[in-house]
Computed example of a mutant assay.
Amino acid sequence: MTVRSPGFGRSSQDGRRRVRALLLDTALRLFSERGYVGVRVEDIAKEAGVSRATFYKHFAEREEILAELFDRLVRDVPLPTPPGPDADALPRVRELLTAAATRMAADEQLARFVYTLPIRHAALLGEGARPPVMEQVEELIERGAAAGVVRPDVPPMLITAQIARTFEAAMRDWAEHRAPDVAEHLAVLLDLTFQGIDP
């Protein structure tokens, strides 16, 4: 009968987490340097100093790495909804999204990689493809509609989708170096979304 020490499982799990993090960090660096298409599983494993078999113990394919990197980018973004009356729903949405964009841009290499992918890769289009902060935005839009400060004739889900596209455009413009400050650029695009182009 084999007797394991109490710390056996923990150290094994810690080692597994370290290897997984190493693979993710290596993949991100290689994707940033060569582009997603230019990096193979073999490249990631070799650069990380592990075998292909070890890679496949952690990830079934590169797409799983994409999904995990996207999750890493948006994981800490859900922020407390800014306090205030429902009549201030749109300023609260602006405050929430500015804080989210600023937090995401702080992890510059990861944010620039995710938002410069030439297409929204299938790994990012699943259930978790929308940053969780958009759930809070939708709630604020629903409250704003009930308070009469957001158009009641357009479903809140559709308004939230438009705001999500605006957020995505601001992040992409920043990631592709077309906007030096993501918060300022987001503010301009949100103004266009909220107020249109009428003078």
Rank of each mutant, 00 (worst) to 15 (best):
3 V>I: 15
5 S>T: 12
9 G>R: 10
9 G>D: 13
11 S>T: 14
12 S>T: 09
14 D>S: 11
14 D>T: 14
14 D>N: 12
16 R>Y: 02
17 R>G: 01
17 R>W: 02
17 R>E: 13
18 R>Q: 01
19 V>H: 00
19 V>R: 01
20 R>E: 14
23 L>S: 09
24 L>D: 13
25 D>P: 02
25 D>N: 15
26 T>R: 08
27 A>L: 03
28 L>M: 12
28 L>I: 10
28 L>P: 06
30 L>M: 07
31 F>V: 06
36 Y>W: 15
36 Y>R: 15
38 G>P: 06
38 G>T: 04
38 G>I: 04
39 V>W: 05
39 V>I: 13
40 R>Q: 14
40 R>N: 09
41 V>Y: 03
41 V>M: 06
44 I>M: 04
46 K>D: 14
48 A>C: 08
48 A>H: 07
49 G>M: 08
49 G>A: 09
52 R>K: 15
53 A>F: 02
54 T>D: 03
57 K>A: 06
57 K>Y: 05
57 K>L: 06
58 H>L: 10
58 H>G: 12
59 F>A: 09
60 A>I: 06
62 R>M: 13
64 E>M: 12
66 L>Q: 10
68 E>T: 14
69 L>C: 09
70 F>W: 15
71 D>P: 01
75 R>I: 02
76 D>A: 13
79 L>D: 10
80 P>I: 07
80 P>A: 14
81 T>P: 05
81 T>C: 08
83 P>L: 11
84 G>H: 05
86 D>G: 14
86 D>M: 05
87 A>S: 14
89 A>H: 01
92 R>Y: 05
94 R>A: 04
95 E>C: 00
95 E>P: 00
97 L>V: 03
99 A>P: 02
99 A>V: 03
101 A>W: 00
101 A>H: 00
101 A>P: 00
102 T>M: 02
104 M>E: 03
105 A>E: 01
109 Q>E: 15
112 R>S: 04
113 F>S: 07
117 L>W: 06
117 L>F: 07
119 I>V: 15
122 A>S: 12
123 A>Y: 10
124 L>P: 02
124 L>R: 01
125 L>M: 12
126 G>I: 11
128 G>R: 15
128 G>Y: 06
129 A>G: 15
130 R>Q: 11
132 P>A: 08
132 P>D: 01
132 P>V: 02
